[in-house]
């Protein structure tokens, strides 16, 4: 029987495997992402854990707590990506400006 636990666990385990094999030079990200995936797997296997945690912090159901956490992480991830894009843009600008200076020409150009 294909149960919801199997459906959710398969991609989570795949993710953990992915993070273990990749991101070798990003230790911090690697650890954070592996922990989050592992926590997800734990919650899937033992749904009573998120429920207990939810009650501890004053939320009705474990599922709600997971949703709230997801929303926060989603926006944090967005900010993180945005600052990465800005860094990439700055590097790209630096390159474009360097090329422009190296290839500067002095007119007039007679054809």
């Amino acid at each position: 029987m294909l149960n919801i636990k199997v459906i959710l666990l398969t991609p989570l385990l795949a993710l953990i495997l992915f993070y273990i094999t990749r991101l070798r030079n990003k230790t911090f990200y690697r650890l954070v992402l592996i922990s989050i995936s592992a926590l997800g797997a734990l919650f899937v296997l033992f749904p009573v854990i998120p429920n207990e945690l939810a009650h501890l912090v004053g939320v009705g159901r474990g599922a709600d707590l997971v949703t709230y956490l997801f929303i926060v992480c989603f926006f944090l991830g967005g900010v993180n990506l945005y600052s990465k894009i800005r860094k990439l843009e700055a590097n790209q600008n630096e390159l474009v400006r360097k090329i422009a200076i190296e290839q500067a020409r002095k007119g007039p150009f007679k054809s």
């Binding site: 474009v96 400006r97 422009a100 290839q103 500067a104 002095k106 007119g107 007039p108 150009f109 007679k110």
Partner: peptide
Amino acid sequence: ANLPVHYLKHE
């Protein structure tokens, strides 16, 4: 093209 100016281009 016909002016004695420095021309730099951003790609």
